[in-house]
Design a binder for these strands. Structure first.
Length: 431
DNA sequence: CCGAATGAAAA
DNA sequence: TTTTCATTCGG
């Protein structure tokens, strides 16, 4: 995960998404760094998405015959042939030495894999999160410099549920889906799905750089805010509401002016509909979410320990965008929003139910299915989605189930009456 | 606005 | 047990 060096000025990078369970689903994103922005220069014209998605093999090969049962076991995510000259960072080098970045001296690497085992002081972790997306990638000097990078190529095949759910018939290994261990007992495994990012400097002199991080790793994207490959997972794992990383996205390093000045995104389709509390800044959310995590880890299932997280400001529908966590403008912004009374304070609690597992799943894949079946009505897509859902194994559903549970739990705590039904006189005559 | 899916919670 | 409603969008 750690940058291999050459962080000085790479300009492109290829993100390569590999999941162990889906060896054939290697996908890569190409990020292009804006070289001139290495200082802190303003705008950067980015490349727009050119969708030359390489992956998705068998994407349209109709999911029928790829029925989630039989998938070749992931044996070889090894190296991608196309990247001959790349540094292949295997996950076991996660702790490799690298140019120490200035803003990361503590908790040096907690990268995805060692995430939990390091049992760092929670305050330290909190600080770490608060100052950065706690990512190995972020910690590399690449992010240290304030030059943005943009994605010029990506692939959505990872999310494509049209492809067979990467469940191995053997199922002995790990849950097929990149669900991250929620329980402490789950050992850290290298076989977990990782997001492999290969940086292509674009210039000959610079080498390529490959990093790995979790699939739910948040990146700060210009004009979008936090984004990740698994937004729904990211919000649960890190408490950061995210949108999906797309081609053409520009990843901003912490402290980048664009990131700081970034105001509202409106890209949080999922969370937008919720009413936002004034305090709904991402930072606050992150903190509370962290507290929640900690609480969960401390008292597993203990009903009593909702001390910190319930302090009120977190909401699973975090605020859109918000700026860098590190900046203290967060609270300023939060306060500002408070006064403005965006939604929550004034409006009559327009809170929505959190999505259940299926809804999360459907939301994620509906688009792909509609593209896959062009003529189909949306209702028909729903049928297909439901069909697919029923065929899924529990391991695959677990990701969504856990997420839904987390969302529900949080929502319940913050807006208990979200489930309140309109009483219809037909049923409710009792009272 | 309706509906098609599933699930969770209220009634 | 039944009903509502989360999402999505064409009809």
């Amino acid at each position: 995960m750690h940058a291999v060096g050459l962080c000085s000025e790479h300009h492109n990078m290829v993100w390569e998404v590999k999941t162990n369970q889906m060896p054939n689903a290697v996908q890569k994103l190409l990020l292009v760094m804006d070289k001139r922005a290495s200082g802190m220069n303003d705008s950067l014209e980015l490349l727009q998405c050119n969708e030359n998605l390489p992956s998705s093999p068998g994407y349209n090969s109709c999911d029928e015959h790829m029925e989630l049962d039989d998938l070749p076991e992931l044996q070889a995510v090894q190296s991608d042939p196309t990247q001959s000259g790349m540094y292949q960072l295997s996950s076991d080098v996660s702790h490799q030495e690298y140019p120490r970045s200035s803003w990361n001296q503590n908790t040096s690497d907690i990268p995805e894999t060692t995430y939990r085992e390091n049992e760092v002081d929670w305050l330290t972790e909190l600080a770490n999160i608060a100052t950065s997306p706690q990512s190995p990638l972020m910690q590399c000097s690449f992010y240290n410099r304030s030059s943005p990078v943009h994605i010029i190529a990506t692939s959505k095949s990872l999310h494509s549920y049209a492809r067979p759910p990467p469940v191995s018939s053997s199922s002995k290994s790990e849950p097929a889906f990149p669900h991250h261990h929620w329980k402490e007992e789950t050992p850290v495994r290298h076989e977990r799905s990782v997001l492999k990012l290969t940086f292509d400097p674009g210039t000959v002199e610079d080498g390529l750089l490959t990093v790995e991080c979790k699939l739910d790793h948040p990146f700060y994207v210009k004009n979008k805010g936090w984004s990740s490959f698994y937004p729904s997972l990211t919000v649960v794992q890190h408490g950061i509401p995210c949108c999906e990383v797309h081609i053409g996205d520009v990843c901003l390093p912490p402290g980048h002016p664009d990131a700081i000045n970034f105001d509202d995104s409106g890209v949080f389709d999922t969370f937008k509909s919720y009413d936002f509390t004034p305090m709904d800044s991402s930072a606050v959310y992150v903190l509370s979410s962290m507290a929640r995590q900690r609480r969960a880890s401390l008292s597993c299932g203990g009903p009593g320990g909702q001390d910190f997280a319930r302090s009120g400001f977190s909401k699973n529908c975090g605020s859109p965008g918000s700026s860098q966590l590190s900046s203290n403008s967060l609270y300023a912004k939060a306060v500002k929003n408070h006064s403005s009374g965006t939604v929550s304070a004034t409006s009559p609690n327009k809170c929505k139910r959190p999505m259940n597992a299926f809804m999360l799943f459907a939301k994620k894949y509906r688009v792909e299915y509609t593209q896959m079946y062009p003529g189909k009505d949306n209702r028909a897509i729903s049928v297909i989605l439901g069909d697919r859902w029923k065929k899924m194994k529990n391991e695959e559903r677990r990701m969504y189930t856990l997420e839904a549970k987390a969302l529900a739990e949080e929502q319940k705590r913050l807006n208990p009456d979200c489930w309140k039904r309109k009483r219809t006189n037909s049923v409710c005559f009792n009272k």
